[in-house]
Write a protein that binds this DNA or RNA. Structure first.
Lengths: 226, 226
DNA sequence: ACCTGAACACCGTTCAAGT
DNA sequence: ACCTGAACACCGTTCAAGT
């Protein structure tokens, strides 16, 4: 007869916030953002739609929680790197890859700002910005710029992945199409777009992303003495 | 009896793609993205929901068209500026302000990439990147970084505006709340977030945005000789 | 060619009723 | 305390029928 049972004892297969979020992530990964419906989720969890509302406030809450689970995992990964510069690159790449694996995370992050996932990223990157000797009064602006860039690329990438999924998968084929549209634009109105069409066709999203991070890091260093 | 009427003659108050898009923009501006429904639009245009489908493919098409109208307006504004650097700042600020006025544009841009609005921005900024003497093989990456940053900030700003609208309006009050949450975080886990809470409270979105642009411009210059 | 509006297939969310 | 599932109030989209 234990008065206070250790933790909450519960049937293995009963509902819980964690199980709901886990199932949501699976659904989101396999069928995209439009695949997450309370009915589909209820079916997967062998229950009714109403039951989910006992553990979760609403759909927005559910999406945020799923998103935060991914971001937390990513930002809690250990950083073996030596320099702050390398650490920032690793953190940024970690987010890039996470969103590449879970495109819906990009859309969610672009939609609800200033929430828990944001603080996680801000914190982790901010500590490295400090280590870079950026002056106190410039730290907010600096981290903010890095975060915005990361979110911008992520959102864009997520959207691209979504489109590639909607049409019949082939991403490089899709880029070929866009590049070919660009190269047929009016030369007088769109000289630049035409000229980079080839670079669009051959580009590597991940490498471009990192190049942008390096550009910002260069700017940071050049702005503060060294 | 003119055989070929000049242009398409039509009753002043009849439906047209332009009138539909115009009405959509008004609806989006006044009631946000969730305010744009085919039923609300039909009512505003004194017609039925089905009629709209004669001029517009579907809701996604409608949103893209409304978004492109705003971006086109913004990117076609004349640039009195002298240096490419100033021109880039002006173009970036133009987008920032446009999205500040029409927050839904941020969400749409974050969702469908590589479309017409994107090409407009790419072109306009790209021409200035050229003028900045960035080498040919670095132009795509450079413009891409700037665009991602602009989109990232825009999306974030749009989301903030949406949240401020959902709750009862007051934006600075909302920032106060977030800042106060941050400053109450665990000092061991979130030292950085705590330390910038004050800077968050006092910050100016527009100034921060421009500071980020300057950081990237600094990086660009520092990467290519001068 | 263009418009009408009822109808269809889906949502998120609520809630009385059960255990 | 937790779950069930029918019901409600909405969507986007279609389509036979009108002009």
């Amino acid at each position: 007869m234990v008065k206070k049972a250790r933790g909450v004892q519960r049937r293995e297969d009963s509902l819980s916030r964690e199980r709901i979020i886990e199932a949501s992530i699976e659904l989101l990964d396999s069928s995209g953002e439009s695949g997450l419906t309370f009915r589909a989720l209820a079916e997967r969890l062998a229950t009714g739609p109403g039951a989910i509302y006992w553990h979760v406030e609403n759909k927005s809450d559910l999406l945020s929680a799923a998103c935060d689970a991914i971001v937390a995992r990513t930002m809690d990964a250990p950083l073996p790197s030596a320099t702050p510069r390398e650490a920032i690159r690793a953190l940024a790449l970690g987010m890039f890859d996470a969103i590449d694996d879970h495109p819906w995370v990009g859309s969610v992050l672009a939609r609800d700002p200033a929430q828990l996932p944001m603080v996680r990223m801000l914190e982790r990157i901010g500590q490295q910005i400090r280590a870079l000797d950026v002056p106190d009064d410039a730290q907010w602006t600096t981290v903010s710029a890095l975060l915005s860039y990361i979110l911008g690329v992520s959102g864009q990438n997520a959207a691209n992945a979504q489109i590639a999924r909607e049409r019949d998968a082939d991403r490089s084929h899709f880029l070929d199409e866009v590049a070919s549209v660009w190269s047929q634009l009016d030369p007088d109105d769109y000289p630049f777009a035409r000229s980079v069409a080839k670079q669009l066709r051959d580009h590597d999203d991940r490498a471009d992303f990192l190049a942008g991070i390096d550009l910002i890091l260069l700017g940071i260093e050049s702005a503060h003495g060294r």
